[in-house]
Computed example of a mutant assay.
Amino acid sequence: MAATFAVVDDDLASQRMLADILNTRGDVIAEFSSGQEALKYFESGHRVDVCFIDLLMPDISGIEVVENVLSLYPGTLFVMISQVEAKTLLAKAYTVGVEFFIHKPINRKEILAIADRVLEKQRLKSALNLIEKSLAEIHNPKPLKVKKTDEAMIKKRFQLVFADLGILGETGSRELQAIVLRFRDSEEELLNLPLRSVYQAIAGSEEEIQSIEQRIRRVIKQALGNIALRGSEDFYDECFERYASKYFDYAEVRDRVLELRQKRTSSARINIRKFIIALYMDVLHDI
């Protein structure tokens, strides 16, 4: 089923441009020129997957709309757009539940990248809900049919992902693989344990934990650099589109691409847990 979008912006030109861009990623089923119109729409029982909304509007602010809608439909994802860059408003937007904040003027590539990112987050949430449901069913007294794990398929999936990311054969990639396999039947632990405890699960000793963390951080940073290089050369590169938003935070990829284009030393941060969870889902999903 195609993703559904709503657009809320009192600037009709921006509203139309956003709708045209988002229609390439799903269906824009509602457009509004004021916060009150949008709020009435949601309060009447309508829902969308993602809402792109202006921060400042004549009647009520985008932040007020977000607060009210999320109280009704917590699963709705919001992307906020504005010409202002006030840090207090930005902090408030993230506090009430906005996923991303985009500054005008609207950039097609940025809108598409963020739309892909929030839709991927939605898919990940759905997958995690299925995991939680499966964990709840563990207590079901009915006998469960256990599907045989295809070890060859798992190995092949690891190789394909690592090859695409340019880290096949690296020491850190072998340790990432060990973590995924160690927690293959313990998804909830992988999601909630501190990263040090995750490393400890594959470490031979306490002294080895720091070395594992360093190797994993180094190989993920290498993967980020490889993917960012593809994006800097071709924003529509197949591997860039597949991995950039799924394995890394949008800000990480953007900063690394800018560093490559400006030939600056890398200062991009990495989200290790996001990378591991994405790898886990890619390798073990449907196995």
Rank of each mutant, 00 (worst) to 15 (best):
V65R: 03
N68M: 04
L70Q: 09
Q83H: 10
I81E: 03
R47H: 14
I81W: 06
H46R: 08
G75M: 07
L56D: 10
I53C: 06
P74K: 05
P58D: 05
F78G: 02
S61D: 11
P74W: 07
M57P: 07
R47K: 15
G75D: 12
R47T: 15
F52N: 04
Q83M: 13
H46L: 00
E67F: 00
D49E: 13
V50G: 05
G62D: 03
Y73N: 01
S82T: 14
T76S: 01
P58V: 00
N68T: 08
V50S: 00
E67I: 10
L56K: 14
L56I: 13
V79S: 06
E67A: 11
E67K: 15
D49K: 10
V69T: 01
D49V: 07
Y73S: 02
H46D: 00
V84C: 09
V50T: 13
V84P: 01
Y73P: 02
V66P: 02
Q83I: 12
E67S: 12
Q83D: 12
I60R: 09
L72Y: 02
P58T: 04
V84Y: 14
R47E: 15
M57T: 05
F78I: 08
H46Q: 02
V65F: 00
G62M: 10
E64N: 10
F52A: 03
P74A: 00
G75N: 11
V84F: 11
F52I: 08
N68W: 01
E85Y: 13
G75H: 10
D59T: 12
I81F: 06
P58N: 06
K87L: 15
A86H: 12
R47L: 14
V79P: 00
N68F: 01
V66G: 06
L70V: 04
L77R: 14
V79C: 04
L55H: 12
P58Q: 01
I60C: 09
I63N: 09
E85R: 15
D49G: 01
Q83G: 15
L55Q: 10
N68H: 13
T76I: 15
I53T: 14
G62R: 06
V48W: 03
L56S: 13
R47Q: 15
P58C: 07
